[in-house]
């Protein structure tokens, strides 16, 4: 799985994502700076977490309009895989590759903690390594992860099974929805199924030594999808 991790000024999870794909999974990976106007041959583009452009104007707004994003959009239009994590999810909504928007957390706090996610759709390229309904323990770290979409968009996301990950309480403790997201949405996929955005950080939960490897399945799903079509 040839992977390209995009680096914006202020990205800070770029190396974590690069590490998981290249070291943990042994896949060929490269890092590409936001001013580039071409991508190397790639199967997967990762838009990493962080605070691109200092979150100025709106989270992800400036990054979504940076030169490399034109190439990322072309890659997505060709059916190429795109994974946006945290700030990467914000970049995807700002660029129109995914619907909705990510508002300030309802309680106004920056939240940095583990949450429980339920796999709502294990049939996507990003979630096939999981079983339907599986509960994952994965960290979040964001101030603006409160997913919002108008009622029509929201019902379309639900009816088309495009909510891939949802916050749930249960299992170890009952915290549930941390940020006010509508329908407890933590991650969605586009209609075509090749672009996924999620607020939690699977790349920070991909090795047991770090406390959880529940997130590795996202990357394993992608490797498996590309290997088996």
């Amino acid at each position: 799985m040839k992977t390209t991790v995009i680096q914006f000024p202020g990205s800070n999870c770029d190396m974590d994502a690069f590490h998981v794909v290249s070291s943990v999974l042994g896949q060929p990976s490269s890092l590409v700076w936001h001013t580039e106007t071409a991508l190397p041959p790639t199967d997967l583009v990762i838009l990493p977490g962080g605070f691109s452009y200092g979150d100025h104007l709106r989270s992800g707004a400036i990054a979504a309009r940076s030169p490399v994003m034109l190439e990322v959009k072309k890659h997505a239009q060709r059916g190429g895989l795109v994974l946006g994590i945290c700030n990467g999810f914000q970049v995807l909504t700002e660029s129109g590759l995914l619907e909705g928007a990510l508002l300030r957390n309802e309680n106004l706090h920056f939240l940095c903690k583990d949450v429980n996610l339920r796999v709502e759709n294990s049939q996507t390229a990003f979630s096939s390594a999981y079983s339907q309904g599986q509960i994952l323990r994965i960290p979040i770290a964001h101030g603006e992860g409160n997913f919002y979409a108008d009622p029509e968009t929201l019902s379309r996301l639900e009816s088309e099974n495009r909510v891939v990950f949802r916050y749930v309480g249960a299992v170890q403790d009952a915290e549930g929805n941390p940020n006010g997201s509508l329908n407890d949405i933590a991650g969605i996929v586009n209609t075509r199924g090749n672009v996924l955005g999620l607020m939690p950080h699977p790349e920070r939960a991909s090795e047991e030594i770090l406390g959880s490897s529940d997130g590795l399945g996202v990357f394993e799903s992608l490797v498996s999808t590309l290997a088996h079509g």
Partner: peptide, 8 residues
């Protein structure tokens, strides 16, 4: 197109 996000 840039200074505001019409979704929100």
């Amino acid at each position: 197109d840039i200074l505001s996000n019409p979704i929100m």
